[in-house]
Amino acid sequence: MSDFPFSGLNLAIATPFDAQGRIDLGRLEQNIERYIAAGIRGFVLSSGTGMHAYLSADESKSLVKKGAKIINGRAKIIVQTSALLVEDVVERTRHAKDCSADGVMVLPPFFEGPTDDRGIVDFYTEAAKGGLPIIGYNVPQAVGVAITPSLLRELCAIPGFCTVKDSGGDLGKQASLIRTGLPVMNGADHLVAYALYAGCSGLIWGGANFAPRTTVALVEAAASKDWADVRKIWASLEHVMSLLWEGDYVQSVYAAADLVGYGAGSPRKPLRALPADRVATLRRALGTLVEREAA
């Protein structure tokens, strides 16, 4: 993974909110500093886990500007710049570039956008005019567009398009993308260990919000090809990462981060905090991670 610019673990950081639902920039700084101290060397700002869809354009830009200033070159910065209009994607990407971001993550056209390969290629060709490396975002269950191996080959021929983040959740389909020999990033929490073994180029991981030390250790073991250690570490993560994937993903990440001590408040409306019974289930699934991350 060493030759790929976004190798290793890139944390899709949860955007902190205060009791009134406003972005809490003070908490953002506290959390980023703690994550860097825990070994995180890549961040995704305004990520899906960070509630990009529920931030206004100005809020997202403010978040990116502040986050990049805090990070200050100590870690890679990826910014989600997805928008309905490709012109807005380009404008947001240029803002990210002005904030010294290293790359951007962009959803394909969504909400009645084109679904044919030509339309997707044209969209990303226009998006690349923003001037930063683009990470495509494969999440067909939410967008209705699937990035196939043949489409990935076409996309990677676009100057500036560097990889795809696969959050489809199907290891077999992700492996078919990896077999193209092109860079592929895993974005499905419950597949991390398997995706690393399959040869993914890097990770964008929302669940790392509540287990930064443990997830960093897993990625370092994989980089050393110590698969026995990977399996041992994954055993402490697998239950909770699988639970996230069963539903209420963002709410579960926020709740788990709070349980472990990396609180970001409650997710913004229209999402609601997890009910008490679901939090109790999540706490059981965390197991020893609470003590491990506090150590």
Rank of each mutant, 00 (worst) to 15 (best):
S2C: 02
F6R: 05
L9D: 01
A14G: 10
D18G: 03
Q20M: 05
D24H: 09
L28W: 11
I32N: 08
A37N: 03
I40G: 08
R41Y: 04
G42S: 03
L45E: 08
S46E: 10
S47L: 06
G48N: 12
G48E: 11
T49Q: 02
A53N: 06
E59D: 06
K61V: 05
K61S: 11
K61H: 06
N72I: 04
G73K: 04
K76G: 11
V79Q: 02
T81W: 11
S82G: 05
A83F: 04
R92F: 13
R92A: 03
T93N: 01
C99T: 04
E112M: 11
E112D: 11
G119N: 09
G119R: 09
Y124S: 10
E126P: 06
I134V: 14
N138D: 14
V139G: 08
V139A: 10
L151C: 05
E154C: 00
A157H: 04
I158E: 14
F161T: 00
A175D: 08
S176V: 02
S176P: 03
T180P: 11
M185D: 00
D189E: 15
A195F: 02
G206C: 05
A211G: 13
A211F: 08
P212S: 02
T215V: 15
T215I: 11
V219A: 12
E220H: 10
A221F: 02
S224F: 00
R231L: 12
I233R: 00
I233Y: 06
A235R: 13
S236C: 03
E238A: 15
V240T: 04
E246F: 00
Q251T: 07
A255R: 09
A264P: 06
A264K: 09
S266R: 11
S266I: 08
L271V: 04
A280V: 10
A285C: 01
L286Y: 08
L286F: 11
T288Y: 10
V290R: 00
R292Q: 12
